[in-house]
Amino acid sequence: MDVVGPVEKSKSGNRFMLVITDYATRYPEVFPLKTVKAKHVASSLIQLFSRVGFPQEILTDQGTNFMSTLLKQVYKLLGIRSMRTTPYHPQTDGLTERFNQTLKQMLRKFVNDTGSDWDQWLPYLLFAYREVPQASTGFSPFELLYGHDVRGPLTLLRNAWEGDQSKEDPVNIISFVLHMRDKLQQMSELAQSHMAAAQKRQKVWFDKKARHRSFAPGQKVLVMLPTSDSKLLAKWQGPFEVLRKTGPTTYQVSTPGLQRGSRVLHVNLLKEWVPRKENETEVLLIHRVEEEEEVNDYLPSVTSSVLDLSHLTSEQQSQVTPLITSDIFQECPGHTTLVEHSIVLKPDAVVKRMSYRIPERFRVELKEEMDLMLSLGIIQPSTSEWCNPVVLVP
């Protein structure tokens, strides 16, 4: 069970979708909701249970509506075991997450320009989805749930092609029930075998890129967590200490300074922390900035005019000192006229790269550099059609 939204507000005032999928039959159910409060979720569950019965387990994320006292009381009353996914790891409930993507893609093809009629299309789209056989089971969700082919759009199309067929002879109720029970048992066994084969194929593809990782209590790790309420702003934070292993793929990590003192996280959200050496920043000339790292950490800092040469031998210091005291190294760049070269351009070919905006925090530095190079005669204004964007390297 999962909640999709908020989406475009419909004419009925609905802004959320409660999506429920059955792992055994792949049968989906979607309830449009105005709010995702626990009482509305519980009401939708009762509507579903009145048609298909009570489940043994329900898997959800750790949303406040799913973790409420009201739903816990409903689960206890109906004998349902509540299961939770680890935070920020939607792969645990991959079946529902994948159906959410399919549902959104289907809705985009039918909603109006404003998207305010999305809740009116849900019954039609769900009917079409339930009638199509699933690759993992080999049967349609309708057929696995009810034990026979449901007369839907595909059945109507087939009848139109084949024409009206003669009706079969009626059978008594006992024969029908026995036949239905045998058919359900055969379909269940076939579906389980097909599902096992599909999962085996999926595991082979997953294992090609998967890497086994494990952490010991007391080990330092980096944790992928959102910096705010938005999941899109997640980045590696830490280092934090691993407290204990709570499951095959989950660890309890101490997170001091955050909202909660400790969290239970999936191993995919953890990576080993390797401390840097003390003199690494002094000898490193080029550092590849990772996607999640801050660029400001590598901006040049103001250094002292007196260089520390204590790490060199006395002979090396004597060789370096004349270079430092001479005019070889200057603060401003220069240019030479001793060597000239020409750039041969292809005729009738203009190279024009698409320009892009410079970050606001670099605007001042960019203007200072351009003014300096203009004053030194290194560059000059140009109206040529040839152009390339400026690339600032901290």
Rank of each mutant, 00 (worst) to 15 (best):
S355Y: 09
S375D: 14
V302D: 09
I324C: 08
P333Q: 04
P322T: 07
T321W: 04
S384Y: 01
V264P: 02
L309K: 08
P333E: 04
R288N: 10
L376S: 09
D308C: 04
L312Q: 06
V339D: 09
K271T: 08
K352T: 06
R263I: 01
T281W: 01
I328R: 10
P389R: 11
K277M: 03
T337F: 08
W386P: 00
R363G: 05
E331S: 09
T313G: 15
R357N: 10
F329S: 02
S382F: 03
H335V: 02
E280A: 13
K346C: 03
R263M: 14
R276F: 03
E272V: 06
V344S: 07
P389E: 12
R363D: 04
S384L: 03
L374A: 08
R353E: 13
M370L: 15
N296S: 15
I343N: 04
T325F: 04
L269R: 11
T383P: 02
I286L: 00
M370K: 11
P275C: 04
I378V: 13
L270F: 01
R363P: 00
A349S: 13
I343R: 11
M370T: 09
S375P: 03
Q316I: 10
V302I: 15
H266D: 10
L366N: 06
Q319I: 12
R361K: 11
E294H: 11
D348S: 12
T281H: 07
E294K: 14
T383E: 11
E280P: 03
L366T: 12
E340N: 14
E290V: 02
E331Y: 01
G261S: 10
Q316D: 15
V390N: 05
L376R: 15
E290L: 13
Y298N: 02
T383Q: 12
P300H: 07
S304V: 07
I379T: 11
Q319M: 14
E293F: 06
I328A: 00
Q317G: 05
E280D: 13
L269S: 08
T383I: 03
L309Q: 06
S355G: 07
L372P: 09
P275I: 10
T313N: 14
S301R: 15
W273M: 03
V289K: 15
E369N: 10
R276T: 09
T281S: 12
L307T: 10
I328W: 04
E340F: 09
P347T: 00
G261K: 06
Q317I: 02
E369A: 14
E292Q: 09
E292W: 14
V302L: 14
N296P: 00
P333R: 05
L372M: 15
L270H: 01
P333S: 05
K271L: 02
P275M: 12
L312H: 03
S384K: 10
L312I: 09
T336M: 06
S305A: 15
N268K: 14
L323F: 13
S262R: 00
S342I: 08
